[in-house]
């Protein structure tokens, strides 16, 4: 099953999402901040990255920007998780290079659909 990288600093959110994704059969690796997320993306080459936006060290926008600049990670799809779907967030996501975004609290079925779509796109480019 696919390996997902979850970059999230909040312990409860991390735990919750990890468990729910694992229950659906994903392998989930965890990063606590932007820098760690970047490092793990490079070393573990996950199939997809779920990126929280407010992160320590550097935030999700910055992490995504750097991911998309590095040749070895730029093809990994990134789904940004924002707190509140504010107008303008969509533009920001696309500008930063995210492939999709979703709002927290995560509605698991919607998120799963987005993950599936991106993974399928990845598999058959």
């Amino acid at each position: 099953m696919s390996k997902l990288l979850l970059v999230e600093d909040n312990e409860m959110n991390r735990d919750m999402l990890t468990r729910r994704l694992q229950r659906r059969g994903f392998e989930v690796i965890i990063a606590l901040d932007g820098a760690q997320g970047l490092a793990l993306a490079k070393s573990e080459s996950p199939a997809l990255i779920l990126m929280d936006i407010s992160l320590p060290v550097f935030d999700g926008w910055e992490a995504t920007r750097r991911l998309k600049m590095a040749p070895e990670t730029k093809s990994i799809p990134v789904i940004a998780l924002t707190a509140h779907a504010m107008t303008g967030d969509r533009e920001k996501c696309i500008a930063a290079g995210c492939d999709d975004f979703d709002t927290k609290p995560v509605e698991i079925s919607r998120l799963l659909a987005k993950i599936e779509t991106l993974l399928q796109k990845q598999a058959s480019p």
Binding site: N10, R20, H84
Partner: peptide
């Protein structure tokens, strides 16, 4: 504030959903 409020709320909503499952 809304960020601070939302974080624990996310946990409440998420965990209650998870527990349902």
């Amino acid at each position: 504030m809304s960020h601070e409020l939302r974080t624990p709320l996310n946990a409440i909503i998420g965990y209650s959903e998870m527990l349902q499952e």
